[in-house]
Computed example of a mutant assay.
Amino acid sequence: MIICSAVTDLRFGDCAKGKVVYNLAKNYDIVLRHCGSQNAGHTIFHNNIKHVTHIIPTGIFWNKTSIIGPQCMLNVPALFDEIKELEKLNIDVVSNLKIDYRAHIITDKHLKEDSNEIRIGTTRRGVGQCATDKFARIGTRAEDIPLLKQFLIDCTDYFYSQTQDEKTILCEGAQGYYLTIDSKYYPYVTSADVTLGSVIASGIPPQSIKSIYGVAKAYDTYVGTRKFQPTGAIFNKIADCGHEYGATTGRRRQCNWLNLDELIQAALVSGTTHIIINKIDVLELVGVYKLIHNKDIKEFSSIQDFKDFITHQIKTAFTNRQFSYPETIFSDNPYTI
């Protein structure tokens, strides 16, 4: 029997999913990275020390079975570099890390091809090029790499090998809803499905998914060449207060007010049972509380009014569609939910 929860980003990534997964993972048997690649960067604080993971699931910090799923793409040297960094912390990676044999490999060729990309503003980690080979059916998979043999599993077989045993699985997403390959913002997207569809494609039946944690921030950020940040010093102030730099590339993120309409749409489509809105403290630092609703900018006199409005709009949107509305949680702490 499988009991599953999933953590997914409702915006453009960079919404502190890593923190959420880290705080939940200790309660699960398995953490499954169900999408993404080393272009992701999940920031967590373990024993009060900051760490950034890229492809290895966050469950590794809790000595949990940590699986890189079949929808993921990875570069072998980068994977072993990440393993070495974690082993310096006395974390037992080798005993707990598993890789589905179907995960695709980012090769040196892919990295070279991506090294001068400027049109989309990618992380230049070879993800698009790897995806191209995958769908052309000429790609290299984890099963083709001898160095990975000790880690290889078939997720489906692994999950169902002992059908009488209850397995609790936490699915860790990457990037965000509006960066998935079929997003309305195409072509300014990632090169894979990073929605909850990749959970099912990893061997998790839909009926076993009991909780879905949708993650956002109190404001929006985006990294890439698409024009995203409006004119105004306030947005640079938000970026400075929020330390808005990419965990993987170090690039400064563009900032804007939270688009509540888009957040609600993503939450509805994703079937969220909990919505976690991080970095409330950043807006408190800048002292301005605004968001986008019905395509207009709405301003509030206090952070409490800001939070109350968001909660009400989410509840209304869900109940109008006869859905159970999610619990909305506002976080002002980089360490905990």
Rank of each mutant, 00 (worst) to 15 (best):
Y219C: 13
Y219D: 13
Y219V: 14
D220V: 14
T221Y: 02
T221C: 07
T221G: 02
T221P: 04
T221N: 01
V223E: 08
V223Q: 07
V223H: 05
T225A: 02
T225Y: 04
T225K: 02
R226G: 05
R226N: 04
K227P: 05
K227I: 09
K227F: 04
K227S: 00
K227C: 02
F228D: 11
Q229R: 00
P230L: 06
P230H: 00
P230Q: 04
T231W: 01
T231F: 03
G232V: 09
G232C: 07
G232D: 03
G232Q: 05
A233F: 06
A233E: 10
I234D: 05
I234G: 01
F235W: 08
F235P: 09
F235G: 05
F235N: 08
F235E: 05
F235Q: 08
F235T: 12
F235V: 14
K237G: 06
K237V: 07
I238P: 08
A239V: 14
A239N: 11
D240G: 10
C241V: 14
C241P: 12
C241M: 15
G242F: 00
G242W: 01
G242T: 10
G242N: 06
G242R: 02
G242L: 05
H243Y: 14
H243K: 15
H243S: 15
E244C: 10
Y245R: 09
G246V: 11
G246F: 04
A247D: 11
A247C: 13
A247E: 11
T248W: 06
T249R: 15
G250L: 07
R251S: 15
R252D: 04
R252C: 08
R252S: 03
R253S: 10
R253H: 10
Q254P: 13
Q254C: 11
Q254G: 12
C255A: 05
C255I: 12
